[in-house]
Design a protein around this nucleic acid. Structure first.
Lengths: 132, 132
DNA sequence: CCTTGACCTTCCATCGGCTGGAAGTCCTAT
DNA sequence: ATAGGACTTCCAGCCGATGGAAGGTCAAGG
């Protein structure tokens, strides 16, 4: 199949498919006489795998490793689990950061009158978090 | 003061200070005879404000607006509050996305034996999330 | 006087992960 | 013949820095 069909089958844009090939995440497929890329059914499965891994927040480098593990029928599940566990920890750090940001902003917004007076704890705190 | 001292006083690298000037977030300071940037105490306060706003996840464009509001002694606090509230909503969306990712990964990791057998629900799910 | 080293200057390149657009080719339908 | 769509390549840009090259400036020490 051509790149457009692969795109429709996976939900990944043709632009992005070419990009993935460029950065070594997808193996360059054979070309037809007209130089069009020619994909097979395997490529649909691989690209769906990649797409889902990206949606789960794995970086492209990590996805490349995951694809390698996925292709290796003899890998130990422990390797994959360790990989996922590390990533979970990273995601949790990011969540905690964002929650801290949200809590700070929510506290400030709650203390802000929100009327047409100029006094504003939000800006005051941005200026000097230790005051007030 | 020179850029190095401003950097030390605010925790923002000299590189980043020049970058902020470049993108219009900081006003270009006067230069000394030797062409070195010459900052004053005001700049410490402004850059600290910017630093903190960035840490709270505001984009540079938004920080520029916040600085403008901060400088405008007559602005209505409602304007700032609306600004912050919009941003809180965005942060919460991002938190929800990450939590969904974490939950999915945690579920998969829990179902994975994590031994030296090749069977691995994590990879299976990445391949076909609807199965099993 | 000269060197060392810390500091400053500019400019250009790189990261991640695409996305947009230009310019050209290929194929089908009318 | 021509219009359109899908494909090709390559180059530019987004955000928010960061790294490094190549050079100017200054004070202290040998």
């Amino acid at each position: 199949m051509r790149i457009g069909e692969l795109s429709r089958a996976t939900g990944v844009s043709a632009k992005t498919i070419r990009y993935y090939e460029d950065v070594g995440l997808l193996i360059a497929p054979p070309r037809r006489d007209n130089n069009y890329r020619d994909y097979g059914d395997n490529d649909v499965a691989t690209l769906k795998f990649i797409h889902r891994a990206r949606n789960l927040g794995f970086a492209i480098k990590d996805v490349a490793q995951l694809v390698a593990l996925w292709r290796d029928k003899d890998r130990a599940s422990a390797d994959v689990k360790a990989f996922a566990t590390r990533h979970i920890a990273e995601v949790e750090v990011r969540i905690a950061e964002l929650q801290s940001i949200r809590d700070t902003l929510a506290t400030l917004a709650a203390r802000c009158h929100g009327d047409d007076r100029p006094d504003c704890p939000i800006l005051d705190d941005l200026q000097d978090p230790m005051a007030g």
